[in-house]
Design a protein around this nucleic acid. Sequence first.
DNA 1: CTGAAAGCGCTTACAG
DNA 2: CTGAAAGCGCTTACAG
Lengths: 366, 366
Amino acid sequence: MKAPGKRRPAVTLKDLAAELGIHVSTVSRVLHSDTEVARGAASKETAQKVRDLAKSRGYSPDPQATSLRTRRTRAIGVIVPRLSDIVLATMYEGVEEAAAESNHSTFVMNSHDSLDEQRRKAEIMLARRVDGLILGDVHAGSSLVDDLTARHVPFVLMNRRYPGFPSSTCDDTAGGRLVADHLWSVGHRSVAILAGEPYASTGVDRTAGFVERWHELGGEVPADRILPSRFDTEGGRQAGEELLSLRGEVPTAVFAVNDFAAIGAMGAFRAAGLVVGQDIAVVGFNDTSLAAQLPIPLTSVRSPMVEIGRAAVGMLRRVMNGEEVASVRHPPELFVRESSASAGAAPRGAAVVLAGSSGTGGLQAP
Amino acid sequence: MKAPGKRRPAVTLKDLAAELGIHVSTVSRVLHSDTEVARGAASKETAQKVRDLAKSRGYSPDPQATSLRTRRTRAIGVIVPRLSDIVLATMYEGVEEAAAESNHSTFVMNSHDSLDEQRRKAEIMLARRVDGLILGDVHAGSSLVDDLTARHVPFVLMNRRYPGFPSSTCDDTAGGRLVADHLWSVGHRSVAILAGEPYASTGVDRTAGFVERWHELGGEVPADRILPSRFDTEGGRQAGEELLSLRGEVPTAVFAVNDFAAIGAMGAFRAAGLVVGQDIAVVGFNDTSLAAQLPIPLTSVRSPMVEIGRAAVGMLRRVMNGEEVASVRHPPELFVRESSASAGAAPRGAAVVLAGSSGTGGLQAP
DNA sequence: CTGAAAGCGCTTACAG
DNA sequence: CTGAAAGCGCTTACAG
């Protein structure tokens, strides 16, 4: 536990130049010519000597100095609602990977889904002079995207979309439709939706996709059976309890727009004496690592979280490059498991149609 | 989706100086004198004018230029096994908060608990010239800590400890003891431990604390009932299955050293026809937000994750300051819930002693 | 109280 | 092929 001594200052271009008896600009030129021959930068021999020395001395350019000169930091700011949400954390893993591959660093901050914090964190990132921003927490109607645009800050959206701005998201509408197809085919006719926060396109689109498809199939979803809910387990439990307290029959199936809310709802149902997967079907969204491992494995729509993060970086790079980019909606996949494999009121073993699902790793209805 | 125009260059000290007709060094001096009176930096009047202008122009110093000059980046590197582990993500929230409060930025990277990646990520951080490192993924016996020390890189450990180096962790030994006290008092005598990865002090200490206390109470834990396990749900399920496949009686209680493994184990037990909380007790660790909301609420030891992260930053700042710092072990708290509220073989309603637990928010045995 | 200079480590157009 | 200079935006000891 002793205090550290002074850190040895890093090797500089000047050090290398001095040791070779050449000018610092020559060293710089060589180190920037990626071709082995160093066309135009220096003679083949000089170039080789420079490269060898840089390697043996463990030279790494000072990024602050480089940034000061080039006016680019090769840093990306990422803002998410909260990293302790496994969905965002996983997307961030994709961001980190892709950013590292293109030699960019990333700052991440939590906004806790507060408009104030979003703005504050964005300002902190900008004060750090990041080259661009990835926003994973955009709210419907937020003015932040317009402000950033007016200031010509390069940014892309991730996780949630916002019409008119480039985003990398799951095709949440398609995901909602998959769930509708599944529940309908298993025999459910009375359903409810724990719809998430109204400001998040994820919940809104998943709900809309479900309702749209449900109607196509001939079903209906009463307005009071679409309940807003927070995205965490506690929020799911509350919404689940609220649902049970409504007058009228308890629905036979519930679609929660994310896994955590689904887990919370399962807890509420169980507390009320209902057996999930038997008395009431529950479907989640995202297929987080937990879903398949729960005591009662949870049917869920898998969204390609890592890929969504990776794509966001690719898009941002193009935006930073001045290109126009289109939004991408990554296709989801349904994984049917015990929590919804049969319909309480419907005959067990009803045909299960996994619309659009590969079913890999999923569990068919028994 | 139109491409962004050029970003307006940020306001510089030079801009401010020019507008006021004074020298840039005066502006700099004023902006660095935190006292209102700007003692020695400039006249009261000049100081006021500078401050007003800086504010109205939205001046924020260029961190790259500042770093180049001061040779400090005010950036901290954080390396964790994976951010999609809610425990580490939550610790990181504490890190982010505390870092922001002291005007530091943080880079986070995932090492996936690979020695190679730990080293690679640390080098990336160092190449970025971070002022210090927080390692959340140290492995027992890893040489990285020694290498960093030899290079005089300021760092502290978080989450896992390593004797001889400053760390901010949960008092995992005490946590293990709490679990032993609880299970014993409820009447269990035959137990097993899903002990986690052998390279992680968390699992090792929790296991050791449990065993130690169990022995004090007069119990014994057969060596083959201490199973290594991965920290995710899948790992917990595997270890749970392995446990069930052992010859001899199935234990009446299982202590999994983290919640995710506990959840996986619960799945395995349930698949084998055992009712958790009735046929077999399960206890987890960390009391993640899921634990209380699970279909069968999970008894767990709460570790103060945010506080562990915050403390790590405080310690690192002192290390960077050349001070000696001692490790801190944050006290845990036990929350008893349905998964372990009674002992299968023991009489229901046996006295529950919550050693060291406030019990707040916890569920007593029914 | 304020200015002027030096310099952090780099890149890049310009000479020669 | 290589050197020399300028300059990115800041801080800081030094004059005056």
